[in-house]
C-alpha cells in the first residue's frame, strides 16, 4: 500500500515536495543565538528552541540582531551555573517546536540541582519547565512531616531561627561598636 503511494509521487515530478521533506528543509534558514552562564561556556541555540524562554524571546525580538551581531554578543546569564544552563539549553532543544508532554521524568533527582534549575527556569521564564520542576518539588514534600521537611531542606525551626537572628544582631551590634571604636581611634 505505502510502496504504491511512493511510486505514484515519484512518478509525478510536478508534485510539490511532501510535508516531511519540507519540515526537514525549511524555506527560511533558522537563526541562532548564543548564551553563556557563570562558567562563560557559550551555547549556540536556535531561535525556535529559545522560544520556550519568554525572557530570551523578548530580548531577541527587541534587539533584531543579525547572525554576526548575535555571535559577537552572547546573552550573559552570570546568575546561572554552567551545568544548569546546559540542562536548560538541552531541554529547550529537545522540546523545540513540540507540544510539551504532561510529565517530564528527566529532571534532576538531587534537590540541590533541582532547586538551582527552578531558580534559573523561573528567571528565564520557561513556563512549562517551571511547571514540571514545581511538580517534582511538590512530590518531594508529599506525605512528609514538618520535621522531615525541615531536615531535607535544612530549614531551621522558628525557635532556632529566632536564636540565630538574635545572635546575628548581637554580632552586628558588636561589629558596629567595634567599627565606631575604630573610627573614634582613627579620629584621634
Amino acid at each position: 500500500m505505502s510502496s504504491t503511494e511512493q511510486g505514484t509521487s515519484s512518478a509525478a515530478p510536478a508534485e510539490p515536495t511532501t510535508a516531511p521533506e519540507s519540515a526537514a528543509a525549511p524555506e527560511v534558514p533558522e537563526s541562532f543565538y548564543y548564551v553563556h552562564g557563570k562558567d562563560k561556556v557559550v551555547h549556540k541555540v536556535s531561535a525556535g528552541a529559545l522560544q520556550h524562554s519568554a525572557l530570551i524571546h523578548g530580548m531577541i525580538s527587541n534587539l533584531g540582531y543579525t547572525e554576526e551581531q548575535a555571535k559577537a554578543n552572547p546573552f550573559p546569564f552570570e546568575n546561572i551555573d554552567g551545568d544548569i544552563l546546559q540542562m536548560v539549553v538541552d531541554w529547550c532543544n529537545q522540546h523545540k517546536g513540540k507540544p510539551t508532554p504532561p510529565e517530564d521524568t528527566n529532571l534532576p533527582k538531587q534537590k540541590e540541582k533541582l532547586f538551582d534549575l527552578v531558580l534559573a527556569v523561573n528567571y528565564l521564564e520557561i513556563k512549562e519547565l517551571l511547571t514540571y520542576c514545581c511538580k517534582q518539588v511538590a512530590m518531594m514534600v508529599k506525605g512528609k512531616s514538618p520535621e522531615e521537611i525541615r531536615e531535607i531542606w535544612m530549614i531551621p525551626t522558628d525557635a532556632e531561627d529566632e536564636a540565630a537572628e538574635k545572635e546575628a544582631k548581637k554580632r552586628a551590634g558588636k561589629e558596629a561598636a567595634g567599627e565606631t571604636a575604630a573610627a573614634a581611634g582613627d579620629a584621634k
Partner: peptide, 12 residues
C-alpha cells in the same frame, strides 16, 4: 544550596 524558603513567590 538554595533553600526551599528562598524560592520566589511564583515558584512557591
Amino acid at each position: 544550596m538554595v533553600s526551599l524558603i528562598e524560592m520566589p513567590e511564583l515558584v512557591m
